[in-house]
Design a protein around this nucleic acid. Sequence first.
DNA 1: ATGAAAGCGCTAACAG
DNA 2: CTGTTAGCGCTTTCAT
Lengths: 343, 343
Amino acid sequence: MRKAKEVTIYDIAKKLNVSPATVSRGLQDHPAISKKTKKKIFDLVDEMGYRTNHFARNLRQQHTKTIGVIVHELNSNFITSVLAGIEKVTTEAGYDIIIAHSSESYEKEAANAKNLFHKRVDGLIASLSFDTTDLEHFKPFIDKGVPVLFFDRVEQDENSTVVVIDNIKCGYIATRHLIDQGCKRIAHITSSLKRNVYSQRYKGYRDALFDSGIEFNENLLIVGDLSEKAGVEAALKILKMDPMPDGVFVTNDFVAAVCMRTLKENGVSIPDDIAIVGFNNDAIGKLIEPSLTTINYPGEDIGEIAARNLINHLTGISNIHQTNTIVVRSDLIIRKSSLKSGK
Amino acid sequence: MRKAKEVTIYDIAKKLNVSPATVSRGLQDHPAISKKTKKKIFDLVDEMGYRTNHFARNLRQQHTKTIGVIVHELNSNFITSVLAGIEKVTTEAGYDIIIAHSSESYEKEAANAKNLFHKRVDGLIASLSFDTTDLEHFKPFIDKGVPVLFFDRVEQDENSTVVVIDNIKCGYIATRHLIDQGCKRIAHITSSLKRNVYSQRYKGYRDALFDSGIEFNENLLIVGDLSEKAGVEAALKILKMDPMPDGVFVTNDFVAAVCMRTLKENGVSIPDDIAIVGFNNDAIGKLIEPSLTTINYPGEDIGEIAARNLINHLTGISNIHQTNTIVVRSDLIIRKSSLKSGK
DNA sequence: ATGAAAGCGCTAACAG
DNA sequence: CTGTTAGCGCTTTCAT
C-alpha cells in the first residue's frame, strides 16, 4: 500500500554510524548528547523525511497523549465554542483530542465512554446527555486513575471535578431583570428539570419570583426539549394562556428566537406585550428582531479552563482531585427584547 | 501513576491455558477458533477488564485507523454540519478523527498538514483556507500514498478528489431568482475571489446577469471577509449607492443576516426596496425577519460523502483516484426576503 | 557522550 | 483448531 518504506531511527543511526539510542536521545534533545551529533541527526532526519512513530513511542511510554471529549450535540453554538477552547489549549500542549457525541442519549454516552476508555485516553472532558443521571459509565476511568472533568451539564460527586457557571444566579438575574422591567407574570421555558443546568436556572427563577413577592404559577412553566418544534409549541402555549404572560425567561437563545418568531407571527409585540430573556449569548441574538437579552455563557473560556486544568493535572503541575468545582464568570447582556418602552 | 496494572492478552492466555495467539484471534472473531474458546476468552476479558492496546496493534499493523480533518474555522454552521457528517460515517467504520483548523491562514494550514502527516493519519479530508493557492503542503501525503480529499474550498489538480456543489449554477439560480422578481440592479456581497467557491458563485452571478441582458456593474460587487464587521460595512456601502440596488446576492447567510439588520436599521424595506438571497441555509435564515431566501448547501451530506469515499478507498472497496470530482445536490430555498410584494 | 539489549502488547506467517 | 515465533519502532536502564 505505502509507496516508500518508512524511515526509522535505525536507518538514520546506520547512516550516521551511531546507535539507535543516540538518535532517540538526540531527537529528544537529551542533555548528554553533543551538539554536533544532534545537528547531524536533525539534518539527516530532515533529509530522509523521518517521522516519529507515535505508536512505538506510546507503546513504550504507556500513555496516549490524547484526551477524550464527550458532548451531547455538535450542532450547538455553545458546544462549538467550548470545543474551540479545548482544542486551543490541547494542541498547544501537544495533545490530540477525540470528540464523541451522544445525541442526548445515555446509551450512546455510555458507549462513547467505553470506546474512549478502550482507546486509553489520558483524560476525559464531558458534558452529560439529557437523560444521564448516574456516573457509572465513568467509573472505569476513575478506577484506573484517568482524570475526568465535566462541564456545563454535570452531576456532582466526590470523584469528579466540574467546570460550570452559577446557573442559579444566572436564572435569578435573568428573572430579576424581567421583574425590574415591570413584569408580573413571568413564564419560563426550559428543558428537563432532571438536568442540573435547567433545574438550577429554574431555581433561580423561582427564587427571584419569591424575593419579589410574586407567587409561582405552575402553569407558566413550560418544559420541552430544545428543538425548533419545542420552541413553536411553547409559543403556542403562551398564546393560549389567559391572561398571557408579560415576560418569558427562556433557557436557550435558539429556542427563544424560535419562540419569538411564532409570537410575533401571532401579533404579539415584543418587548411591550411580552419581554423575553434568553440564555447563552449565541450569535443569533444580535441578528433577530428585537435583539435578544441573554446571559453570556462564555463557551470558549469554559473549554480552555477545562482543558487547562486537565492537562495541568496530567503533567503534574496541579492536582485536579483537590478541586471540586470551578465556577466561570457569566453575566446578563441587556438588549431590546426585554426593555419595555413604557419604562 | 496508573493504579492497576493493565491486563494483556498474555495474562488472559495464561489463565486459560492457551496461547496469546489464540486469544488474539478469538478477540478478532477469527473463524478458525472454536465457539467454546471464544466464549471463554470473552468472558475472561470482561471479568479481568482487559482492553486492547491500540498502539501495539497499530504498531504491528502499520496503520493508524484515524483520519485527519483540516477546516478553516470551527465557528461555522456549515462546517459543523460537515464535521457531524464525517463523524457519523467514520465512527461507524471504526475510525477516529483528528480535527485541526487553520483560522484561515495558509501557514497554520501547512502546520496542521505537517502535524497530521507526522501523526500518520490514514487519510485526510480538508477544506482550504482563504489564502491557500497551492497544494504543496499536501504533497507528502500523496507521495506516501495517503489519500487526500477536499471539500467546499478546493483547488483542482490531478492528484486529488474533491467533493463540492455546483457553485456556478447556484450563483446563477440565486441571481436569476432575483431577476425574476424584477430586480434590475443586483449587488453581490462575497469574499476573496481567489477562493474557488466565491469566484464560481460570482461567475454564476455574472452569467445570470448576462443572460438577462443586464450589464455587469463593478460598483455593485462588494468583497470582504465573512465577519460581522464585513456585513455591516457591506450594508453601509449599499446605503451610499445612488441609486441603491434593488437586489443583493450574498455568499453567506450570516453575512446576509448582518447586512439585512443594518439595512433595516437604516429604513430600507426588505424585500420591497431590496430583495436578498443568501447562501448555505443556516438555521439563522428561518429566524430573522423577513426569513431569508438561500441556497441549500447540505453540509452533513457533504461530510458523509467525503468520509464514505475516503473510507471505501482505504478499505479497498473503491478507488478514489478514479474519481476527480463529486458534485452534491443543492438548490434554492425561497423565503420572504426575496419575494417582492408587487409581483 | 555513546552503545547494547530488553521489552512495551499485539499480530501473522508458518507449523502442526 | 491452536501454538511458536519473530518483529513492528521506540525508550531506557545499565554499561562503558
